[in-house]
Design a protein around this nucleic acid. Structure first.
Lengths: 342, 342
DNA sequence: TTGTAAGCGTTATCAC
DNA sequence: GTGATAACGCTTACAA
């Protein structure tokens, strides 16, 4: 069983007051080195561990941050992006000796309720939002309460009230499209995810921008948004490739989706990159292992995670710090999913 | 700003004692419907939310459970298994109105320290361990403290002191191997992950069992353990396939690893399944999207996650409940990575 | 059925 | 430098 050794037990054993023990824990400079040593020794001896609930209650700070995942009913949740970003957030957080609490509701309402509980229940000192979408009730709530949080992604609005960490997705998509243009492709399609997500919006913008600069007409029938990975998506891709003038290249906003697209293309007896080239996004672990290995835009998830933590802790420590927009650089990783058009 | 409305404020406004408000929150049957209604109304009006730290401190229970991931330095952390199991754990936990706290240290020591803090700091009521390996300090600690926890995987020892949720991996691997044997393969290789993991051990056992039953000699040069996904693994697979009598089929313990193996095979100008068949494990999302789609053993991650939560909460509610070993059934999913040998 | 008061394990504000 | 003592916001006997 867990025997709770408290600050009082230590105090008694060390012949000091509880407050002194507390000061030793806080490493207060006002305590003589001698008593510090003595108290610390006894703490070791008795196996003392501070009670975090008591500490949080008294100090009004929890030393834990909350992570908000997209709703787990959404297929997006399965994206390796989240484990990866979790990994780096976790790393940043450990370094600062914070703990992590997380919430992944099945629906938006569940998530919202969870967040409210976290915040009002004083379970966390700050929050990192792992996704950004239109009209998000969570963001609105956090802004309203002026609660410390960082958004991974681009704010839909209130951008001057929000600290965010994001890639320049418009530029990234533009560069990806240019890469295909430079290979000689003129008919380039776009496959995006959920239209409400800011990433999708931005990458679509960059795609269009590149085409406009290249004086190529934007064809709406070249642009599709598949919400589901296989079922609906497969249909859409088949339709796209069955057009009279099908695209010879595709910009796909996510590696996982790309896997599905490649699969569909393959099922139609076409080959990547011989018949159709693909540039995709995120550089997921498997994009190197896939067949063919994917040319993809690395968004530096490490940077996203670490900067999010840094930003959040900064605004916890100093609530009046000005909000900022942090941009993490991307890199295009050339592999074997692109070729010149036939 | 967050204005903390406390139980006292409600009490004052409702003209009752704080304890009455507390009882209303706990939905005590001893409170008259009338006062309940009145108090609840005022709680809504003033926007009351309980302070969890205070509640935890007073009641000695946190309504949160801790999740322990494998160390994030390990490549295994990247496995989609973890997001998937997190999803279902989260679902189970939400239903029971528990919160989730998690820890993913970079090293074993970091994880151990985190777990001790969680437990001794009274941050969580119970723990779910997401991996099982030989001589795990965390397990030893939890057993020693007799702290409620559930292991996802098979206990290395102390199995009568541990509630665990696992697949019958020995049987699963045996069936996978038999599947290949039935197709006519005689030379079957095994590719496992980290040797210390119980999954690896069990699946190797099942593989050997199937071969023995089929009166096929076990060749040690057909068994490899690749710790890394690409670098070292690729070498090992190449070596395996360059043997005088290379295997015509492979049992690979994980879909992600299989992706790497398929890739390596492809790089050697061999084809799956024409030249070499593969049965793999886990039925990750991408195994259906991969090229070729993988024949893989579905381990029912939903079941693992949900049962883990159920088991944990049961043993939190009743610490004297007897430990049990819960087995989640698996299913083989036939896709296109297997064929008869040439 | 409801109120009173002690206690949960800390931190923080005074004094000395 | 160190010690009392009052918070922190809640639960829970024990009274009434």
């Amino acid at each position: 069983m867990i025997v709770a050794v408290t600050i009082k037990d230590i105090a008694k054993a060390a012949n000091v007051a509880p407050s002194t023990v507390s000061r030793v824990i806080a490493d207060s400079p006002k305590i003589s080195p001698e008593t510090k040593r003595k108290v610390k020794e006894i703490m070791k001896e008795l196996g003392y561990h501070p009670n975090f609930n008591a500490r949080s209650l008294a100090s009004q700070s929890t030393q834990t941050i909350g992570l908000v995942f997209p709703n787990s009913g959404n297929i997006a949740f399965q994206n390796p992006f989240f484990s990866e970003v979790l990994r780096w957030i976790s790393e940043g957080v450990n370094e600062k000796h914070y703990a992590i609490q997380l919430t992944t509701g099945k629906t938006e309402e569940e998530i919202f309720d969870d967040v409210v509980k976290m915040v009002q229940g004083k379970r966390v000192d700050g929050i990192i939002l792992l996704y950004s979408k239109e009209n998000d009730s969570v963001i609105n709530y956090l802004c309203e309460k002026n609660f410390p949080f960082v958004l991974i992604g681009k704010p839909y609005h209130y951008s001057d009230l929000i600290t965010s960490v994001d890639n320049d997705n418009i530029l990234a998509a533009k560069e990806g499209t240019n890469y295909l243009l430079n290979l000689g492709h003129k008919r380039i399609g776009f496959i995006g995810g959920n239209k409400n997500l800011m990433v999708t919006k931005d990458r679509l913008l960059g795609y269009k921008w590149a085409l406009m600069e290249a004086d190529i007409d934007i064809r709406e029938d070249y642009i599709i948004h598949e919400e589901f990975l296989l079922q609906g998506g497969q249909e859409a891709v088949k339709e796209l490739l069955s057009l009279d003038e099908p695209p010879t290249a595709l910009l796909v906003v996510d590696d996982l989706m790309t896997l599905g697209v490649v699969r569909t293309i393959h099922d139609m007896n076409l080959k990547v990159p011989d018949d159709i080239s693909i540039v995709s996004f995120n550089n997921a672990l498997f994009s190197e292992l896939s067949n063919p290995p994917l040319t993809t835009i690395d968004i530096n998830i490490l940077g996203l995670g670490l900067e999010a933590v840094k930003g959040l802790i900064a605004s916890i420590d100093n609530p009046n710090e000005s909000k900022k927009r942090i941009i993490i650089p991307h890199t295009i990783i050339e592999r074997s999913s692109c070729a010149r058009p036939k």
